[in-house]
Amino acid sequence: MIRYMIGRVTSLCLSLVVASLVIFTVVEIVPGDPAAYMLGVNARPDTIAALRTELGLDLPTVQRYFAWISGLVQGDFGISYTYRTPVAQMVADRIAVSLPLALLALAITVAIAFPAGIYAASHRGRAGDLGVMGATQLGIAVPNFWFAMILVLIFAIKLRWVSAGGFPGWNAGVLKGLTALILPAIALALPQAAILTRVMRSSLLDMLNEDFIRTARAKGLSKRQALWRHAVRNALIPVLTIIGLQFSFLLAGGIVIEQVFFLPGMGRLIFQAISSRDLIVVESVVMLLVASVIGVNFAVDLAYAAVDPRLRTRS
């Protein structure tokens, strides 16, 4: 186990270093100078040079890379070029929107997928199953930004039940905050719910074929009882894996949805930072996202390995 751990930690560190190098290189070769962007068309060359010095952009690339990395290691994400505020603070502000949004979307996903998946599995091959499966196909096929557009048209403009977008801030009250997130969460959740329903269904169907379910059936449990008592619980393992994947997607993948609903989330922060060449923000935020996914994977691997020693030699 110790050897396995050392190996895994080494590969974790290696992954992080490679990731940081990739991110830094890509961001560095993006054409466009942050200082020139900030000062616009009438700026004189000496003014741009002065700003570059002020921002530390005149230092050699290698030196800036190590400054960035050593800052990251110490928990210092740097200071945004354009906003002139610490990146950590900006990220914290944006996570306060993106995290609840992702959680809400996930809750909706699960709330739809679990009942739908179980229903479909228990009515396998019948009209109900076909209906659910048809709906999931549609759910996967609908582009979520288009669906979001339609939601806004109906619920914000025609019916005026909710506001068209924006985020009042949690200071305005938890209820107001949640109301602002409900449409975007639905738009984000729909395709995910469709995917999860299918996973849930097929995972349940696999379970129903397993011996222990047959045994349970043989012991006189009704199909329904067998499903609920044994199959659902065991089917959760692949389902949870998918949920984990979906969550990291929801956290960073909402750029387009955040744009449609003008939410101040992580995705839009990155989008804005890229277009204003706020390189330090792009680097730090992307690194943070990548590191969190790698970290979660690492934790999952360790958990699996702890439970099942066979997995320690990678299969």
Binding site: S15, A19, V26, V27, V30, A252, G253, I255, V256, G267, I270, F271, I274, V282, V286, L289, V290, V293, I294, N297
Partner: peptide
């Protein structure tokens, strides 16, 4: 681990 859309934008 990389957010796909962000990479596409970059």
């Amino acid at each position: 681990a990389f957010p796909s859309l962000v990479i596409a934008i970059l």
